[in-house]
Amino acid sequence: MKILVCISSVPDTTSKISFEENNTKFSKGGIQYIIGPYDDYALARGVELRETLGGTLTVLNVGLADAEPQIRKALAIGADDAVRIDAEPTDSFLVASEIANYAKDKGFDLILMGRETTDYNSGVVHGIVGELLGIPSFSPVMELKLEGNTATLAREIEGGKEKLEASLPLVLGCQEPIAEWKIPNMRGIMSARTKPLAVIAPSSEALTNIDKFELPAPKGACKMISAEDAGSLIKLLQTEAKVL
């Protein structure tokens, strides 16, 4: 089994978001970076599959050097080697085509990643990678089992889930509860220091670029209604807020 897990490096989900340089740059000061929460599920399932089926697990990040602590963490969790493609990951097509260019002649059976990154939330990189490699892609995948060349998976659909069977190779966008997040142990952390981390120059160009950031307008004051008179809320929702 040859597995590629793609991870993003994103601000911790509790981060306060702010911008600088006239709202053209994200302020990284004081921000704690983590492996993308969805990517972390993909990584955990990848490590489990590699442990039971053997083979190799490569972790890939499209990002700048400041993502390396997160890549080392993925190595500590159980990836065998790592690749960082040295480009700023702001455009979905760029990220996807870097992944596809790297993967195209390496014969991966499974390419796993999160359903979306929690910074730009596009949720399309797995689909573009699948198209560029000419193999099926599914998302969001909540269960994944392998038997020989056949994958049985469950993906979330509106109001429920769908169980599917498909043949490898596949690209999957993952989410909970596909596996439990893994915490690296001391032996993993020690061995991660010497595992190979290759840095590759990017080969594709972005098709979109961000010109400017903006924060949402601050919320007005909350109108309080007494619990005794709770029913009056419904009238306000109808006549004042006009949502009923």
Binding site: F93, N121, V124, I128, G130, E131, E158
Partner: peptide, 23 residues
């Protein structure tokens, strides 16, 4: 945006080398 549309739009954008922006 929907879970099906995300997948369909992603693959079609990939095929046409089109820049794709969601949300």
């Amino acid at each position: 945006k929907s879970s099906l549309a995300d997948a369909v739009m992603a693959r079609a954008a990939g095929a046409l080398k089109a820049g794709l922006v969601g949300n």
